[in-house]
Design a binder for these strands. Structure first.
Lengths: 238, 238
DNA sequence: GCCGCGCCTTGATTTACATCAAATTCCCGA
DNA sequence: TCGGGAATTTGATGTAAATCAAGGCGCGGC
């Protein structure tokens, strides 16, 4: 009735599984369930045990943790084609974050067992899995770097440039992937601060903002933009 | 002359390689070099390309990045038996951090090629490698959680409790694994702040500090310690 | 249309932590 | 043992960003 998904086809198109042969894909598909989530629905809570991992087919999932004081911090916003939960699956631990749908979404849940079989069967697959985790690790390190030695303005700029893609000259327009409140949390700042920063960047003529639509008017200048206290050009060394 | 290391023996004792058989270990050993570093020496810079990964035999290595403004942030302090650089090896990227010896150290450098061979040979090894990376990922997530939703005091407490181990009742004494300046950076705070926090915790009778030697006097209370602004116990709800 | 309700913005104020500037102590080598 | 430089502590001050507190504005429902 409702659009059925050809699990095998979807799997085969994921970067991770591209090079598996038909029977391997079939095996994987056998251990895979489809999951539909409506906006706001929680997929799992922090502390849950996972026996597999998830791939987003469409929609958007946020991964976040929350402090005892009830504050929430978004770790990651995962979109179509991206996966999450592998790391938890490979360790025998409970999940350090919770997962919630930001919009109506459809996921695949791939059982640990079939992944292990695939690893046993194909060491190239194991390597791809390793590379995948490594990339995840790398981007977390980036996050740590951003949080610890860049100002909020710099973090916002980095985020915008990432969304704008590699194009560097002409104005690029795009849409924020979520509510400003979620974006703000992802960048480790409050909605108020995000708002002020976007405002200030557009006053500088570097971007323009209309709701969720943002244009990067001058990527080069934007990436150069320096919000650090201006050490007055001192003429004494000469 | 100087104490020679039996590379094979050291490798065989690493958790990662425990279950490999003799010939596999021999293979690995063939692709392994020994590296000596004296205190302060830099192993590699941010941006270097690695063709393998490192295991610390003894000594201590710090992994850090530095901002354009010259500030440095320590990501990790790695001690004997621990490894680093795997993630970079599995991706084809340059290293996001620099590595420097905190004290005279001895490392093993294991070539990518022999690891790949081991993976091809033994899928259980691949799984262990995956689990290892997953744990690394997990602890980075912890870091992100700590940085983003815990106060500096809470971060210090967490760190102390980690060092103190699982023992929860009796006073535990231990030594800080590095200069306070390095510890501070690891915890994302300045040496001054760290000093003040340690001072304040010992005023509360929770720990005692003498140089690098720290006693956790009351782990239970310490883990409970709350530095948030005290909402005065309000008697209105009754 | 026009109401109602989140989302976002804007402004005033607070605060946790950094920064700057001296002591003081530690540690190590001569 | 003594000196000297680095590590650490301590105090005074500054500040980026959070928090608190109203508004405005967009949008879907009626």
């Amino acid at each position: 009735m409702s659009k059925q998904i050809d699990i095998g086809r979807v799997l085969a198109n994921l970067p991770l599984f591209q090079q598996l042969n038909e029977s391997e894909i079939a095996n994987l598909a056998a251990g895979t369930r489809e999951i539909g989530l409506s906006k706001g629905q929680i997929l799992f809570q922090k502390g849950c045990w996972l026996d597999g991992f998830y791939v987003t087919v469409y929609g958007q999932i946020k991964l976040a943790f929350s402090s005892p004081q009830g504050h929430e911090k978004v770790v990651s916003i995962v979109g179509p084609g991206q996966s999450f939960g592998e790391a938890v699956m490979f360790m025998e631990t409970s999940c350090p974050v919770m997962a919630q749908a930001l919009e109506d979404s459809r996921l695949l849940y791939i059982a640990k067992q079939s992944i292990f079989t695939a690893i046993d069967h194909d060491s190239a697959f194991a390597r791809r899995m390793l590379a995948g985790l490594s990339m995840r690790l790398h981007s977390l390190i980036q996050d740590v770097e951003n949080y610890s030695l860049r100002s909020s303005t710099q973090r916002v700029i980095g985020f915008l440039l990432q969304l704008a893609g590699t194009a560097t000259d002409s104005p690029v327009e795009f849409e924020l992937p979520a509510n400003k409140h979620v974006i703000a949390s992802r960048l480790n700042l409050t909605p108020e601060t995000l708002s002020r920063i976007l405002h200030s960047l557009s006053e500088f003529g570097l971007i323009s903002v209309r709701g969720k639509r943002i244009s990067v008017l001058n990527a080069a200048h934007l990436s150069q933009f320096d919000d650090s206290p201006r050490p007055p050009p001192c003429a004494k060394d000469a």
